[in-house]
């Protein structure tokens, strides 16, 4: 059964990454942490963008909300993990609340409304100086650990977030809610007529797609010990998940994870040499993906291999 195989894959992937600190240097651990963060963001986006078919650009809003919640609570003396959980929960609640207002919009309208969420929160974070430190940013307590132990700890923390996002995806796929989202993605009017509570399903999907970015934001804040509004509400945080999912394959289970790896490779190989071209390169990738590979690189590769296989047979 493919369900069992996917769970095994998830466990295997988590085990391999968890063992990384035993063999890898701090630079590799940093890359591993970013990979886990990207995977968590991409898996989450896939819930609303892939399963439900709502092109969300709200990831940065959830990420920043989680980061600030976690940072503020830690400054107030909370331990890291409860502060992190609170950030994830708040991001989920925030999504559920605003979801009711923007999820009746479809297509571009929804995309634009979701994009505005991070802008509004960024403005708020900049204005509410007494709470967030405003444009000066917020410092977080640095854990008393030697560097390698610290790198390993934050890799494991981010891996935990990614693993939860992966598990949520697997649970969702076989569930009633997952089925409802697939119906909505393919024909929302027909879904309603067949008894799908479309509003509830979409709101739940949006909330689920917010929890893990909220957690990742908190983990990121704790990891970097310092956050500021333009950093954690960065619009690229909203664009990258979409690119990763398109790279890996929309609505599949592990496509987003593959896409996360691919994007990280791109970043490491190309962008470090063209730092100022960040956004432009990302734009070009999107255009190429949308025009030529609408089902993702994985699917394109599979089809290419399939064709060659048939040709040989």
């Amino acid at each position: 059964m493919s369900g069992l195989r996917d769970w095994a894959l998830l466990v295997l992937g988590v085990a391999v990454l968890a063992a990384l600190p035993m063999v890898a240097d701090n630079y590799t651990l940093r890359l591993g942490t970013v990979f886990c963060m990207y995977a968590a963001l991409a898996l989450s986006w896939n819930v609303i963008g892939g399963f439900a078919g709502y092109p969300s650009f709200a990831t940065a809003a959830f990420f920043g909300l989680g980061a600030y919640t976690c940072a503020i609570l830690q400054s107030a003396g909370w331990p890291m993990l409860p502060a992190l959980a609170a950030g994830g929960a708040l991001a989920g609640l925030f999504a559920a609340a605003v979801g009711g207002a923007i999820l009746h919009l479809r297509g571009h309208y929804f995309a634009i409304a979701s994009l505005a969420l991070a802008e509004v929160l960024r403005e708020l974070a900049t204005k509410l100086e007494w709470l967030t430190g405003g444009g000066m940013g917020l410092n977080l307590p640095v854990p008393a650990m030697e560097l390698h132990a610290q790198a390993a700890f934050f890799l494991h923390l981010m891996l935990g977030v990614a693993a939860l996002a992966g598990a949520a995806t697997l649970l969702l796929r076989g569930s009633r809610l997952g089925f409802a989202l697939r119906c909505i993605q393919q024909n929302e009017d027909a879904a309603g007529m067949l008894g799908v509570d479309t509003r509830r399903a979409k709101t739940l999907a949006f909330a689920i797609s917010a929890i893990f970015p909220g957690l990742a934001g908190g983990a990121y804040a704790s990891w970097t010990h310092y956050i500021e509004p333009p950093d954690v509400f960065d619009v690229l945080l909203s664009v990258k998940p979409l690119v990763m999912v398109l790279l890996g394959g929309l609505g599949t289970v592990f496509g987003p994870v593959v896409g996360a790896g691919l994007l990280l490779l791109f970043e490491e190989a190309v962008w470090r040499s063209f730092l100022t071209l960040h956004a432009a390169v990302l734009g070009v990738i999107i255009v190429v993906l949308v025009l030529f590979l609408p089902n993702g690189l994985m699917d394109a590769t599979r089809r290419l291999l399939g064709r060659r296989g048939r040709g040989a047979a």
């Binding site: 089925f179 067949l194 799908v196």
Partner: peptide
């Protein structure tokens, strides 16, 4: 007609059974 085009015929019908039936 408003089918779910990328689902199987059985899945299309199952939606009705699951959410209203």
């Amino acid at each position: 007609v408003q089918p779910f085009p990328r689902m199987t015929v059985a899945e299309n019908v199952a939606a009705g059974a699951l959410f209203a039936g």
